[in-house]
Design a protein around this nucleic acid. Sequence first.
RNA 1: GCAUCGAUGGUCUAGUGGCAUGACUUUGGCCUUCCAAGCCAAUAGCCCGGGUUCAAUUCCCGGUCGAUGCACCA
Length: 576
Amino acid sequence: MIGMEDIYEKVMELAKRRGFVWPSSECYGSVAGLIDYGPLGAGMKRRIENIWRDFYVIREGFFEIECPTIGPEPVFIASGHVGGFSDKMCRCPECGEYLRADHIVEGCLEGSAALMQKEDLEEALRDFPCPACGETLGAPTVFDFNLMFETAIGPGSQRKGYLRPETAQGIFTDFGRLLRFYRDKLPFGAVQIGKSYRNEISPRQGMIRLREFSQAEAEIFVHPEKKQHPSFSRYASYTLPLLGSSQQESGEPPLEVTMADAVASGLVANEYVAYYLALTHDLLVSIGITPEKLRFRQHLPDERAHYAIDCWDAEVHSDRFGWVETVGIADRTDYDLRAHARHSGESFTVFIQFTEPRRVKQVRISPKMGIMGPKFRGKAKAILEMLKTASPGPDGVEIILDGETILITPDLYDVCEEEVEVRGEEVMPHVIEPSYGIDRMIYGVLEHTYAEEMVEGEVRKVLRLPTAVAPVQVSVLPLMNRDGLEGAAREIYLTLLTHRIFAIYDDSGAIGRRYRRQDEIGTPFAVTIDYDTLEDGTVTIRDRDSMEQVRCPADHLVATLSALISGSITFESLQT
RNA sequence: GCAUCGAUGGUCUAGUGGCAUGACUUUGGCCUUCCAAGCCAAUAGCCCGGGUUCAAUUCCCGGUCGAUGCACCA
C-alpha cells in the first residue's frame, strides 16, 4: 500500500465522489451529524442489514419487529432517558463556556454530585472558578441538556413525545405481545433495525457520531437462572481477542481464548454473552472488518451501568479515530422490564410451570366481613386487600392506611392454615442485548477494505468489499463498442438481470478505465465480451482483487457467477 | 459551545479589489483487439447572509460546514 497516511480523507473522498455517503441537505448548507446514503451506500447498507438478518432472524430465529421512531413521554421516563439521558449544565457568565455543572462540583467535593438538585448545584457552584477562564462562576443557572429530540404529538394541548434514542424500548414495551407470540416460553428474542436519534452536542467525527443513526438491536429474554445458550456448542471453541477489565487495568494485551474457556474462567459472565461475542466477531469479519483491527473490550466496573452483570464492546480500529465502539453486548438483567412494570402497572413476567407441582403450606387470613364491614365502612375494602398479604401476630395485624395505623384484632378474622398446590411461578426474564451501530460498521468496512496499489505507474484504488456487501455484483463490458460486441454484451447483461444478478452495463471509454471504475466501487467481478465471444461463445470473468481473468462459456455464466457470488466456489478454483 | 485554521467546477488545485487557472473525471465524436493510451469538442466552480466600495471570489462582520485543541459524549 502507498500513501495511506490519511485514509479517512481518502475513504470519505471516494465515498462522496462515487455515491456512498453524502452530507445531508447540502444545497442549503449541511448539518453536522446528518448524512445521506447515496445510490451505492444505500445498497451497501441494505446488504449489511440483510447479512445481520441472516445471523439474527434466520439463524437465531428472532423475529424482526418495527416500532415508531416517536414515542410518548412515559416510555422514556420509564426507560430512564428523560432523567438520565440529560446532563446538568451551566454557562460561565464571564467567557460563555458551557460546563458540566456536576463535574465541576464533583472535582472538589466528597461523594457524587450527579444526584444533586439543580438548586443545590447552583448554590455549590457559587465560589468555584470557571475551568476555562478562571473567573468565579457566581451563581450560574443550572439547566438540563437532554440528548433526546423533543416533539409534540398531535395539535392543541399535545402529548409530549421524543424521538427514540435507541430502538430497544419498542421491544420492551411490546414484551407482553411478544411473549404471547412466542407462546409463553423462554428463551425468546426479537430484533429491530431502524433509525434512532440523539441530539449530540458536538458531532464531529464524520459518520462515526451521528444525530440520526441506524441501529440493529436484539433483545433476548432468558430465564435468570438458565443462562446456558442452547446452541453454545457452535461457538464454544471460537477464539476471540478479549480485553477484560483486569487486562485493561494492568495494561496487558487482549487474551486469545475460546468462548468455553472464557465462560469457565469467569472472564465472560455467561454463555449467552459469550455466544453473542463470538457471533458478532463472525458477523463483522464476514462483512469485511479486518480481524486484526477488531477487539472486544469489557466495560470497566465504573463505566458499566450499575444494573448490568457484564458488558462488552466490539471495537473496530480506525486509523483516524482509534478504537471505535461499534457493537455493545450486555447482560442487562431485568432492569428494563422491571422499570416498565413499575411505571406501566403491567406484569412483564412469564409464568414458568414447575416440573412437579409443589405443595406449599400457607397461612390465609379470612376476614369476618359481617363485623368488619360495619366497623370500617368505606375503608373496609382497602383493609381487606392489605390483609391478604399480611402476616398476623398474637395481637392481630397492624395496617397502615393513608398514614393511619389501624389495628385489626384477632376477633375480626379467622386464620386457616392450608396446603395448596403451586404449579409454577412468575419469572421476570433477564435481557441479553447485542446492539449494533450500522453506520459505524459501514464506515469500518469502507476503511478496512479501501486499498491503493501501484499498477504500471498509476495508483489503483480498490474497495475489497466482500461479494455479499458490494453494492454491484457484476459489470458487463464489451471490449469494443462495435462489430456486434455491444449487442452480444447487452444480451448477456439482460440474462444476468433476469437471474437476479445485480449487474451494470458500461461501454464508455477504454476497457482499463472501466475496470478501474468498478474497482473503486468494489464490484467483485467483471464480464468482458471480446472477439472470441463472437467466435466460440466464451466470455472472460475478471476478478477484482487479483485482476486475473478466466474464460467461461456464456452458457455457464449465470451458474458460475452465482456460485462465485454465493461463495460456493472461489475464483482461484476456476483458474486451474 | 469556545479557541485556532480552512472552504475556488464532480475531484485535486492556481490566482485576484475589475473577463477566474490548469489537470483529472464526466458527456459527445474520432481512434482503439483487455487494465485510467491518443486526438477534437462540450458540460461544470469562487460555501451562505450582511457590510465597506464605482466594483468583493478577494477586505470586514455574522453564520454554515470541515480539520485541530479544549469541553462534551452510547
